[in-house]
Write a protein that binds this DNA or RNA. Structure first.
Length: 962
RNA sequence: GGGCGAUUAGCUCAGUUGGUUAGAGCGCAUGCAUGACACGCAUGAGGUCACAGGUUCGAAUCCUGUAUCGCCCA
């Protein structure tokens, strides 16, 4: 059977076969809706990756973490659901497809039209959009692949419609004129997180604004400085600091904005103005700057918009000044208009100063063009507190949506790990800033609101009241201009609405905008499980929502804690009344070796798919899990592989080596298991008590590894999990137990085979959540008709037996001491050295006698004598372990031995001095806990014993030297 | 500007509520073709815990400040 196992593990040969077995025999990891109590159900939703994206290390580490959790719980016998899927990623996807179409066909989206563009994006999605899912599968992600969802599919769309309807009906969705980040290239509002900042060399221009009426002592001008002179045409005030003595007299009076000739007030504002910066006078342009916008609200200033959606100066960019007319209408805003304005100001002699100024300019992530703050009509979700409160899905009441989400974390319904991230979550929500949910795009969930013109609003309103008196299908609200806004609940009611309007010959028009992608993402835990229905179909097997919602854990990156996690909590509470997950685990961000984030532009990223190909999925997972500590960043040194030219990291070698170790140790055990009948009745739990010393020891170590591993997973300590299992398997099992077992196997011992069988099965099961492929492949040799993926996770079988553990530890020390001497004297590996052990205590004599064969086999020695009284053998190298002196005969260099003993004696003396000074310190003895003081005393006794051994031997050697 | 984090061996990181000689992997050095594994085995060297103060019988750990780097928010 084992002939087929090569001496090297080759993941590429194994992984696809193992994957096939899982997909077939576990029915694509299909989640069961069974009859388990809630504590035996475990569900996770995957953070849906961007449909345009490819797998990167962030996805890979997160997939590894989630897979460890889900596989562990599956092995605990829990019913598990790991819901996979992808996000339609509105602007990112539309930008990619538009770009491709333009490059190939030189057509814009307007050339194609809305329906055609959307059709093309769907086509693109079907062709390329599932790449990332197969990449996740290559990593071994055991999601329920039979239920893969997409944020734009029918099930998710139904949830979006229902949520929008309920929010609209509750008055939590409204339309408003606000300053948004405008991408003039893509002609849409973009979210804060879709902006990156670039430091540009710009020009700071100081401009003279003449006072409208001069009095005695007045300056002729107030001088304001700006990097965006074109916005001056929209100025509706200039501001000074209220405490600034230079300008106290002009507060409340007026200046004339050059070129447009507008008279605007001089206001005092301590928040906007820093009196130590520049001239201490600031222009205020509420429609074109966020700070000015806020200032405008404080002082009730008019908002004058200058911008057209495609980034040009609108009709407001014109005026009369000093008897001349100026007109910039139609010029490109931050370029042509700016140049013309500066030229005109120059001619008028109104430029006081220009100087080079470096500043950060926001750019759209998608079009790479500068963002303009733009005043426009958008849809918002109200985050703040509302009069009368907000009713949540469980009929309880909360002051507002943001508050509900804050409370959920504050009272522990949602627990965030690492804890420190809870603060960022709460701080962000506490601002309660309304959420702009409309995007001027075509790819996404179109806003389900229709407008009826004011002229027909009354009539339409009546019609709705007749057909839908309980407001179950439609929500209706008047706009300020008298028009009627109608929110329709579903696609079915959309048809009803159209029919009603047609029958009355009323023209209604659907809003063009689509929803922010985060709106559908915020519903992900609910929508994927079929909300507002019980599941994604009426089949009993599909009633996911009552069985698997709320989920247990959400594992994600910190950058979307606010944008995504907070919004899921809000929507979960609003729609359903329950939080969407109990625990949030924030994993670290992987950077390159010098601490820079991995970026395409830097060329420093490692492609996980390359690592799967070169090292295997298990190696990738092992290494990523070993880096999953609670720090916020982890560095992964990146090197270029000379052969392939691809980026990789030496850190993945550790994973490959470990997989290979597991493979070979398993190969060894498999080849010696022999007849199972010989030991099938021998229970490991019994051997843990009655077995040989080494059996008792390894079974105790195994039990400890099992309980440690369980605790590590429960507490999200993935790096600890890896090092615990590494140390256990490579150290305890391979380096010690297998080496001890070899001699016993040769002698035909059946008990050792029973232990080996247990160790192999247990180790494979323990390692399976981290390294599913190699462990499953070996398991197949043990149990061809079974899958490790659905076998039980090990349970501890014994409690630590201190005497066994202590004895074994002494034997290890003696073995190492003899090996050390062999190494120092370059003893050939085959030479058996003669050893004598002099022990003071009966306890030590007993221990050495117990472990005699172990020491002999593992250090190639023959123990001739173990006794309290012994004439120290001449010509021997010496080592001291506790109160035992070990003499290794035949290999000795007196000078080396003397030097070694002296060095060690000096070391011990230092330690003894430190211990003594502590014990002589009354403060220490009286204040330190008794346990600590006693510990020092015991330690000191041990030092004394060792010192004495060394001193005696040293004295003797010095005596014989002469 | 506000908040958070990091600084421990050449590199990447652990280090539980302060307590016996600060650990691991990689790398390095030396030896080894040992019937599972050279992706291996054995042994070893390597640290003023960023710096300066303080609290304490006792500090990598707690407090204050400084420096450097990074992240988030404005």
């Amino acid at each position: 059977m084992n002939d087929e196992l090569g001496s090297q593990y080759e993941p590429s040969k194994t992984e696809s076969q193992v994957w096939q077995r899982w997909m077939q025999e576990l029915e694509q990891f299909r989640a069961r809706v069974g009859g388990k109590p809630p504590e035996q159900r475990f569900s996770i939703v995957i953070p849906p990756p961007n449909v345009t994206g490819a797998l990167h290390l962030g996805h890979a580490i997160n997939a590894t973490i989630q897979d460890i959790l889900i596989r562990y719980h599956r092995m605990l016998g829990h019913d598990t659901l790991w819901m996979p899927g992808i996000d339609h990623a509105g602007i990112a996807t539309q930008a990619v497809v538009e770009k491709t179409i333009f490059e190939k066909e030189k057509k814009s989206r307007h050339d194609l039209g809305r329906d055609e563009l959307v059709r093309r994006i769907w086509q693109w999605k079907e062709t390329f959009g599932n790449r990332i899912l197969s990449q996740l599968q290559a990593v071994g992600a055991s999601c329920d692949w039979s239920r893969t969802r997409f944020t734009l599919d029918e099930t998710c769309a139904a949830a979006v419609r229902e949520a929008f309807f309920r929010l609209f009906a509750a008055g939590l969705i409204f339309r408003g004129r606000r300053l948004v980040n405008w991408d003039a290239q893509l002609k849409t509002a973009v979210a804060d997180d879709e902006i990156y900042f670039e430091t540009l060399r710009g020009q700071m221009t100081s401009i003279r604004y003449p006072l409208a009426e001069r009095r005695d002592g007045d300056p002729e001008y107030l001088i304001v400085a700006t990097t965006r002179p074109e916005t001056m045409l929209g100025d509706t005030a200039v501001a000074v600091h209220p405490d600034d003595p230079r300008y106290r007299s002009v507060i409340g009076r007026e200046v004339i904005v050059p070129l447009v000739g507008r008279r605007v007030p001089i206001i005092a504002d301590g928040q906007l103005v820093d009196m130590n910066f520049g001239t201490g006078v600031v222009k205020v342009t509420p429609a074109h700057d966020p700070n000015d916008y806020a200032t405008g609200l404080r002082h009730n200033l008019p908002q004058i918009n200058l911008l057209t959606p495609d980034g040009r100066m609108n009709e407001n960019g014109a005026g009369q000044f000093n008897g001349a007319a100026y007109d910039y209408h139609g010029k490109r805003f931050a370029s042509d208009a700016r140049k013309a304005i500066l030229a005109d100001l120059e001619t008028l002699g109104l430029i006081a100063e220009t100087r080079v100024h470096e500043h950060d300019v926001g750019h759209s992530d998608r079009s790479k063009t500068p963002i303009e703050p733009y005043l426009s009509e958008q849809w918002f979700v109200r985050m703040g507190d509302v009069d009368g409160g907000v009713r949540l899905g469980d009929q309880t009441s909360t002051p507002g949506l943001a508050q509900a989400a804050i409370d959920a974390v504050a009272d522990g319904r949602v627990n965030i790990t690492p804890e420190r991230y809870a603060r960022g979550y709460t701080d962000w929500l506490s601002q309660k800033r309304d959420w702009c949910i409309s995007r001027q795009l075509w790819w996404g969930h179109q806003i389900p609101v229709w407008t009826t013109p004011a002229s027909a609003a009354d009539e339409m309103h009546k019609v709705l009241q007749i057909h839908d008196p309980e407001a179950q299908m439609f929500g209706a609200r008047r706009r300020a201009d008298g028009a009627l806004l109608i929110c329709s609940r579903s696609e079915t009611t959309d048809h009803t609405l159209k029919n009603l309007a047609e029958r009355q010959a009323i023209e209604i028009q659907r809003d063009d905008d689509v929803l922010d992608t985060w709106f559908s993402s915020a519903l992900w835990p609910l929508s994927t499980m079929g909300w507002p229905q019980q599941g994604t179909s009426p089949a009993p097997d599909d009633q996911l929502l009552p069985y698997y919602y709320p989920t247990q854990v959400l594992s994600t990156a910190r950058e979307i804690l606010t944008l995504w996690v907070a919004r899921m909590v809000m929507f979960g509470l609003f729609c359903d009344g329950h939080v969407p997950f109990r625990k949030v685990y924030i994993h670290a961000v992987i950077q390159d070796g010098s601490g820079r984030p991995m970026k395409k532009s830097l060329g420093n990223g490692v492609d996980p798919v390359d690592i799967v190909e070169s090292h295997g999925a298990d190696a990738l997972r092992y290494t990523l899990a070993s880096m999953a500590t609670e720090t916020q960043d982890i560095r992964l040194p990146v090197v270029k592989d000379a052969a392939t030219g691809k980026n990789t990291s030496p850190r993945f070698d550790a994973g490959r080596h470990f997989a290979n170790k597991v493979w070979n140790a398993s190969r060894f055990i498999l080849s010696h298991l022999g007849n199972e009948e010989d030991y099938v009745g021998v229970a490991p739990a019994e051997l843990a008590v009655k077995g040989e010393l080494a059996d008792r020891w390894i079974l105790a170590a195994t039990s400890k590894a099992i309980s440690d591993a369980r605790q590590c997973i429960d507490e999200f300590h993935f790096a600890d999990l890896v090092s615990t299992l590494y140390q256990y398997f490579w150290g305890d099992v391979c380096d010690w137990y297998l080496e001890i077992a070899k001699a016993r196997i040769r002698s035909g011992d059946t008990q050792v085979r029973a232990v080996l069988n247990y160790l192999l099965r247990t180790s494979l099961a323990l390692l399976h959540p981290i390294m599913p492929f190699v462990t499953e492949a070996i398991w197949e040799r043990l149990s061809p008709n079974d899958l490790l993926a659905r076998s039980a996770f090990p349970e501890p079988i014994s409690i630590a037996d201190h005497e066994t553990v202590k004895t074994f530890s002494v034997l290890q020390q003696i073995t190492r001491a003899i090996r050390d001497i062999r190494s120092q004297y370059n003893v050939d590996g085959k030479t058996v050295v003669a050893v004598r052990v002099q022990c003071d205590s009966a306890e030590m004599i007993k221990r050495v006698a117990l472990g005699r064969t172990i020491i002999e086999n593992l250090s190639q020695c023959s123990i001739l004598e173990v006794d309290a009284k012994m004439v120290p053998p001449p010509e021997s190298a010496i080592a001291v372990v506790g109160d035992a002196t070990i003499y290794v005969a035949g290999v000795v260099n007196r000078d080396i031995e003397i030097q070694k003993l002296r060095q060690r004696r000096a070391e011990i003396e230092k330690l003894m001095a430190s211990g003594r000074s502590k014990l002589e310190n009354n403060q220490f003895v009286s204040k330190a806990p008794e346990k600590v003081v006693q510990g020092i005393r015991d330690q000191l006794e041990l030092y004394k014993a060792e010192w004495q051994r060394i001193d005696e031997n040293l004295g003797r050697m010095l005596a014989t030297t002469q």
